[in-house]
Design a protein around this nucleic acid. Structure first.
Lengths: 196, 196, 196, 196
DNA sequence: CTCTAACCGAGACGGTACGTCAAGTCTTCTA
DNA sequence: TAGAAGACTTGACGTACCGTCTCGGTTAGAG
């Protein structure tokens, strides 16, 4: 039956992705070779190549398979609290070991493999962006955001600093840092007119 | 004399960096091998290894050698205009061919080579950050910024979205985008009290 | 019915052998793979393996299937003319394209596959040897050969030089060459007493 | 000094050829892979490929390197005895283990690799042929051979049957067989006129 | 002006991994 | 139930670079 074959196939697929993650955690993505993955998974190289055309896409699949928890937005009615919650969860997931380095390497790979970049956007970034945008629109309707704020930018302005820390300065993504970003972004840089 | 030797040495160094850039532009960093660099530069592999311990650091040196123009901040008195100016220059330099892809690859390499990451920060990011911070402090003194704004974050909040576009969504960094970022960051997301 | 099944089976067998010959002629035996044969024949690999245990034996079957013309000895009463006739036919069949190279490859394969060697002898060499021996014995009875000649060797002495040319020096087997061999072998190397 | 480099190079060359022979004797030429040779010799694959363009030519070099003894013709004044001597030596060298199977495989390889065939002829067959021809011409001058015998064929007529046995029927090359060949070839197949 | 030490190009070397091919075995579905 | 289809492990192919290493040939400064 198709089920049996599919099950067998899925088994190999899963085994290979697991071996990929294991090796990536042990030695880093730079040392990850398809040869080693196949050997660790007890599988022929061809069986890997049959499923993934490149090391990068294999790694992408493996890393994204971890995101089972999801990063869906809560809606408690308080937009700042909700953003803080999801940013904290994202930081906890992507910004620290063991997944942080893997995610860093994944983005690194995307810099010279357009297929990885495209797949990463399509499968991870865009859904997350859409999710956030929906929550922000609800908040705007409730008057919790400036009515003229450029919402399409919001995700990038909130995420940008986190990615900057993750990828450029490679400093830790602490709760305090998230709070500071939220406060600064909500307040804006302009001097306020005297509210009194 | 020492001068002659140094001159000769510098010549080789420069030749190698030039070959590195040429090859990187022709085939991309992924295809850049020390073997090819040495061959292109007409130099023994040893002569490359004597100067750089890794492909990444060679590439870093080569890419940073291009930043001769500098990204110093102007001070026209208008902080928004000045920021727009420097962001535009940065986008023009780093966000489009031929240097954009190289810079992307450089950051990609930094994701799995801590030495590259450290050197990139020390030699490029930190000076630029300090530069911007100085200009922002002057602006705050002049009342052009909210007096309580978290200035240490400012660079990250302004740069973050640009890097996000460069590295994640890999969309172009247009003037319009820079304007939108500036406007959004200055305005902040909070609803304003009626300014009447 | 069994007949139908047998017919179908024979069809496959023939199809596979034909595909084998086609591929061998196109690309040479060295490039002949069971994978390619099966694919060319539109047949599963199993269907090939079910019939032949090795590439060599498949190739043997395929090549020998061409020998339909046969190399039976004529008997015109003139032993030299008859030998020349059969040697010429053999040279025409095995010593030139398209079958020459295939026959060479077949003997090449026999050098490291004892099963091929044994089957080649049993199915091709031995019958031909017996055939020649019978004709030679008739000639001896008729006084056309030296009565003490070592007839068991005759086939090897006549064929040996042809095979030597085919396999070692790889020069063409011309009519002239066959004539020279016949003349030399019949005359012998010893100096003759004056026939006066 | 050049000597040192050459010595080092020769060492590797020799080591590789030795490993080739060892493996060929252990498992046969069919199982001989460059990968295995390199590994056995404790050498990188490239070091093998740098010296030999193909498995066949490596094997040829390795096998021919054994022919140190040489097969030069003696000249005792008795041409039959001398031919018997050299044929016996050749049979002892090439017709029995351990070199016999290797020589068989070498000729097998020559059947589908023209470069091997050419090199085998140039480096082994032709010198041996010339050697024999010279000895035969001396014998003819001394009246030990028929003055009109086709000497250019002689080597082929004498060697042919031996090669036929080695390659086709794969029967052993005994002293008795050599004697029978010599006797038959010297006598010729024609009936002799009554010498009385 | 020679001597000498550093540097240089060239490239051999043992390795590791690449991505491909075919081997022979095995399983699944179809006719 | 035999057969096509093809997945599977294995192992070898020939290539590309890795980083280390020798080699002989400059070259420039010290003696």
């Amino acid at each position: 039956m198709t089920d049996h074959r599919a099950a067998r196939t899925d088994n190999r697929t899963h085994t290979i992705m697991q071996a990929t993650l294991d090796l990536a955690r042990e030695a880093g993505y730079a040392k990850l070779s398809i040869e080693a993955v196949a050997s660790r998974a007890g599988v022929g190289k061809h069986t890997v190549y049959r499923r993934w055309p490149s090391r990068g896409l294999l790694f992408l699949d493996a890393v994204l398979s971890l995101n089972t928890a999801g990063l869906d937005h809560p809606d408690t009615g308080d937009i700042v609290a909700d953003l803080r919650e999801v940013m904290t969860r994202a930081a906890a997931l992507l910004g620290q070991p063991p997944w942080g380095p893997l995610y860093q390497d994944l983005i690194g790979e995307a810099q010279h493999d357009p297929e990885v970049a495209a797949a990463l956007n399509r499968r991870f970034i865009e859904p997350q962006t859409a999710n956030t945008l929906a929550r922000l629109e609800a908040a705007k309707d409730q008057g919790q955001l400036a009515p003229d704020f450029d919402l399409d930018l919001a995700f990038e302005i909130l995420s940008g600093p986190l990615y900057y820390r993750l990828l450029i300065t490679q400093q830790p993504l602490t709760h305090a840092y998230i709070d500071r970003v939220l406060q600064a972004v909500f307040a804006g840089m302009s001097p306020r007119p005297q509210t009194r």
